[in-house]
Structures are given as C-alpha cells and as structure tokens.
Design a protein around this nucleic acid. Structure first.
Length: 137
DNA sequence: GCCAACGTTGGC
DNA sequence: GCCAACGTTGGC
C-alpha cells in the first residue's frame, strides 16, 4: 500500500466537508505531475489531507475508494481524478511549520515543491507525521 | 497584497 | 525546438 498527500483549500473543500460525505471525487487537478500521482493510486491507499493557504496543516487521513477515471470538469480530456473517503482526523493537526522544523520531514515534496498538489509520502514520513498527529499509522 | 517558483502557451 | 511572456499556486 502506498501513501500520498493531497492539498485542498479549506475555503473550497475542507476536511469538515470531506467528513460530511460518504466519498468525494478529487476533480480539478490540471498538472501532469499531480495527475500522474493520482493515476498511480490504488484502492486502499491512504493520503494525508492538507489544508493549503488558510491552515497550512495536515488535518486528516483519507482513503482511495475509486481509482483514476476521467475528470468531467476537464474539457480537454487530459486529466482524471480519484474518489476519496475520510478515514479519521488527526488528533493534533501537523502544521507546515512543524514539518519544516523536523530535519527528516524537510525533505517532503510539500516543503521542497510547494506548488505540487498531489504527492507521494514515504513510509517513514507517513509514520512520523502520524506520530506527531497523535494517531496510529 | 506581494512575490517566488514554476508550469504552460504561443511566436518564431 | 527554443524561449519569452504569462498565469497560477501558495507561503509569507
């Protein structure tokens, strides 16, 4: 099983919104690198749910319930999406500032490639962020 | 609100 | 196929 991180602006789609629904399609990705990451996701893979802009923190964990399929909001037909369901919130959100303070976590694409909205997370980083967030991996 | 990073578009 | 111009994202 692989681990990921996905970003959402809470003003557009927040963790509370995600928890209020059974599952939600992750549409609107228009970047090849991010799209390729979506394409590599398999059912059962888990992802950190990160609030960009207002928040700048990892707030919860979601799971892939439907694999990559065409995004109807993309008229060019080039991009697709997956569906996520909420698994559980972190007890304590893990802020970007906290991630930057950790020597290990500084290597995350979240820090190094701030504009990428869908990225892989290594097993080690996953376990560490879960620990900081007060939940079990 | 500004600015840096960076991906995309379009002219040549 | 290169590169300048432009648009978008997201941290600060």
């Amino acid at each position: 099983m692989a681990y990921w991180l996905v970003k959402s602006e809470p003003a557009t789609w927040s963790w509370d919104d995600q928890m209020s629904v059974e599952s939600e399609h992750w549409d609107g990705v228009r970047n090849y690198q991010a799209s390729n990451n979506l394409k590599a996701m398999r059912i059962g893979d888990q992802a950190f749910f990160y609030h960009s802009q207002k928040g700048k923190e990892i707030v919860g964990i979601v799971e892939v319930v439907k694999e990559y399929y065409p995004d109807p909001s993309d008229s060019s037909g080039r991009f697709g999406m997956v569906d996520f369901k909420a698994v559980r919130p972190l007890k304590t959100p893990v802020t970007l500032a906290a991630i930057k303070e950790h020597p290990e976590l500084k290597e995350m694409p979240l820090v190094r490639q701030s504009r990428l909205s869908v990225m892989p997370v290594s097993d080690e980083h996953w376990a560490l962020v879960c620990e900081l967030g007060g939940t079990t991996a």
